[in-house]
Design a protein around this nucleic acid. Structure first.
Lengths: 303, 303
DNA sequence: TATCATCCATACAAAAATGAATGATTTGAA
DNA sequence: TTCAAATCATTCATTTTTGTATGGATGATA
């Protein structure tokens, strides 16, 4: 089962992702028979079925699903390799892929990146926004803005500092429903919270419990709006849906947003910028990294 | 520069590793013209030279070296993928790749692995011994025995406990040169130490400084033997070269080895077994992981 | 129910990749 | 110095891979 053409793995991944030979062929710029032959070759090599064929497409078998993460890693690595390979060496030119949370990416990074690209017109930025922080070691991104200390050895990390959080609501909402003066009163307000439980959210709620014992029990709150998108939460706060958590630096830009229970809530996000150390000497990444560090430091200091 | 055949990267890596088209062709089971064409295609795709050709072989250019780590990751991932793909699912059969330090791999693991393979004859073990711990996330190994807490999220880790270290010497050596009674006396003995400075060694020496202030300044010691191989240090201790550091569990197996300065030196290695969480449900890795945990726990408890 | 879009499988022709063979050049050893 | 053993480059025939065209089957839609 050795000595398989590595390109077959790319075909394999495309079929997994699209669910059909034809769709994979379209994605890859190949034809459906070719893709089918690649899968045949893989199945023959491993000795068992990877997909159950049907007229509606191909359904992956258990072992095929077990192989998928590896194929994804291959795709991420080749993509990273192409980013490194493209563009001149010694010039700030080519593509840099940045991973950050959606709020940071939409509210904080744009002006930083605009200034950077103004200075280096040849620089292209790919911005991947998700809370599931993409892994730098697996080359899913070149540079990441993180809210946890990136302890891995092969990373260059710069500590930015604490981004303070707070409860905020729109002035209109408070005029209509009143402003809570004690944490207990929050239970009678319309609150904006998270939907599913992710690792980050579990950590945050644990911190809220520790820092703010008077806060109503999270399990029993009647949420006005639940969403995992911090951006949607922010939009909801801005339109007066209710009271939610927001970064202080973002909230203070909007004079209509009012901090609720100012003293009671002292939560903040510890922030880091991290990059794989292989990239630290290549101009375009160094320049981008430094711009992010500087821009985020300014953002944190302004709060 | 997109849409390159992934197989070209394998050829690229082979040329980097071997240093010539011909040797790479032999490794890959291809012919030298084919390998040359692959490199040509890559160079055309990226737009610059990756190698300078000569009659002695191919010398990588700067950008080619920058790409090498990515190609290595690809190779490690495809290899891991093949380990996962091979063998039946549900059966304990196929290959598992383990990374450990040389001493653990030579002195502690063999009986554990022998018992495991006795039980599962279809299980093949690849043992990679190095102090530079191979990265589990990059799939350079499936399971690793580590001396640091593997903090990465995607890993399943089991804490084994403390492996005590101590100064040991052969009885013959002590009869001839005397046994030190105070740490200060070590300065007049033949000591076995490390050669280069690795991250692990820096951490260890820092701990020695903290735990054992009476220990002679490491910079000024006249070492009898310096080597980065713990195995060679062990062999040196066993042949009476001098006094060195050794795991207590290993030393006590040999009645000729005597602990020196027993009370004065309380250093130990915190030990973990770690595995990528993708593998935790697949029988052969689960079985191997459990066998390692159990075997190492027994080893630690026996000390 | 009939039609259309989508899927996979197969047969055959075109295109592309590969291998074999040879030549030219360099290095190191006899 | 000469010879053997490397190396890479080039040419041409062969093999392999790919694409085109088609058929049959399924499911959604009017």
């Amino acid at each position: 089962m050795n000595d398989l053409n590595w390109d077959f793995y790319r075909t394999f991944l495309a079929v997994l992702r699209t669910g059909s030979l034809s769709a994979a062929a379209r994605d890859l710029g190949l034809t459906q028979p070719t893709v089918g032959r690649h899968i045949d070759a893989l199945e023959q090599a491993v000795g068992y079925q990877l997909f159950t064929r049907s007229q509606q497409g191909l359904l992956p078998t258990e072992p095929a699903l077990a192989l998928q993460p590896y194929a994804e890693t291959l795709a991420a690595t080749t993509a990273a390799m192409q980013r490194v390979a493209s563009g001149e060496f010694g010039e700030v030119k080519g593509t840099v892929r940045i991973s950050a949370s959606d709020v940071i990416g939409c509210e904080v990074l744009p002006p930083i990146l605009a200034a950077l690209q103004d200075k280096y017109p040849g620089l292209a930025i790919e911005l991947s926004l998700s809370d599931a922080v993409e892994d730098l070691l697996r080359r899913e991104a070149d540079i990441a803005v993180r809210m946890t200390n990136p302890a891995q050895d092969a990373l260059v990390a710069r500590h930015i500092g604490q981004i303070p959080l707070g409860f905020y609501a729109h002035r209109r909402y408070l005029e209509r429903y009143g402003e809570p003066r004690e944490p207990e009163e929050l239970a009678h307000h319309r609150l904006i919270g998270f939907d599913r439980r992710t690792a980050f959210i579990r950590a945050t709620t644990a911190r809220i419990r520790a820092d703010l014992p008077a806060f109503p029990d999270l399990e029993n709150i009647r949420w006005a709006l639940r969403t995992d998108s911090n951006l949607a939460q922010l939009a909801a706060i801005r339109s007066g849906v209710g009271i939610g958590i927001c970064q202080a630096g973002i909230a203070r830009r909007d004079p209509e947003l009012v901090r609720v229970l100012p003293g009671a809530f002292e939560l903040s996000l510890d922030t880091w910028v991290a990059m794989h150390e292989n990239l630290k000497n290549a101009p375009r990444w160094r320049v981008t990294f430094n711009a992010l560090v500087k821009g985020l430091l300014d953002y944190v200091r302004a709060t």
